[in-house]
């Protein structure tokens, strides 16, 4: 199994719903709490596992705005794991989820240095490394209703721009979406083989115009009454 997420850049409106859903689920989840430093003061700064950034592509007037959520890509070649000296970071063999064992992390930051995607954040209170767990504690929790065994961010996304599934299964929702919409990995040149993929914005919908004879200019007089019963 190769579990991961697909994010649809065509429909993400940058609402931060997924980021906060992630924060609230995981603050009491396997890796919680996700602490917040100076929460009511200057420059509040806490640990998040998912953040939304917005970019403008191209110069105006041709430019386009793109919202881009970023969380752990559960890379196949995850250097964050290999660099970890304590063995706290690891990639699960059975499903490819990259996790941090909170009991073992020494807070050296090295894994965050090795991660190109900014997916790892040090907890300011606990001193351990936090990252997306792919909500391992939801997707495998059989006590949850079947349809809720999905990552918190996927469940909450109001534009349904986030898909979750098994990339090893060619018929899974994620595999199909990536195939049909040319899903892409970010920074492929670094060779991390990220599992998560991004669906690029679709081509613009095109609508025909009503065919009219533009040389004719209607006047009030040119309208004719039709007999239509109320």
């Amino acid at each position: 199994m190769k579990l991961g997420l697909v994010v649809d850049l065509d429909t993400c409106v940058g609402c931060h719903g997924c980021a906060t859903a992630c924060k609230q689920w995981n603050t009491s989840g396997t890796i919680g709490p996700l602490s917040d430093e100076n929460p009511y003061g200057r420059d509040p700064n806490g640990a998040w596992l998912n953040r939304i950034r917005t970019y403008e592509v191209d110069d105006s007037p041709n430019s386009k705005t793109v919202n881009m959520p970023l969380s752990c890509m559960h890379c196949e070649d995850a250097a964050c794991v290999t660099v970890c000296p304590t063995g706290a970071s690891y990639k699960r063999e059975e499903d490819g989820i990259v996790l941090v064992d909170q009991d073992k992390c020494m807070g050296c930051n090295l894994c965050s240095w090795a991660c190109p995607y900014g997916a790892r954040e040090l907890d300011p209170d606990q001193g351990t490394m936090k990252k997306c767990t792919l909500c391992v504690d939801r997707i495998y929790d059989e006590k949850l209703p079947e349809q809720e065994r999905k990552p918190a961010c996927v469940l909450t996304c109001p534009t349904k721009s986030r898909l979750f599934g098994d990339f090893d299964d060619p018929d899974s929702e994620v595999s199909v979406a990536v195939r049909e919409r040319s899903g892409k990995a970010l920074m492929p040149e670094l060779g991390y083989n990220p599992t998560n993929k991004y669906l690029p914005p679709r081509n613009k919908a095109v609508v025909q115009t009503y065919e009219v004879d533009k040389s004719v200019i209607g006047t009030l007089k040119s309208w004719a009454n039709r007999v239509i019963a109320r």
């Binding site: 603050t27 009491s28 919680g32 917040d36 929460p39 504690d137």
Partner: peptide, 13 residues
């Protein structure tokens, strides 16, 4: 000055 909210102790893997 710091919040570490959690409704229960984490169940670490």
């Amino acid at each position: 000055e710091m919040i570490s909210y959690s409704s229960h102790k984490n169940v670490n893997l």
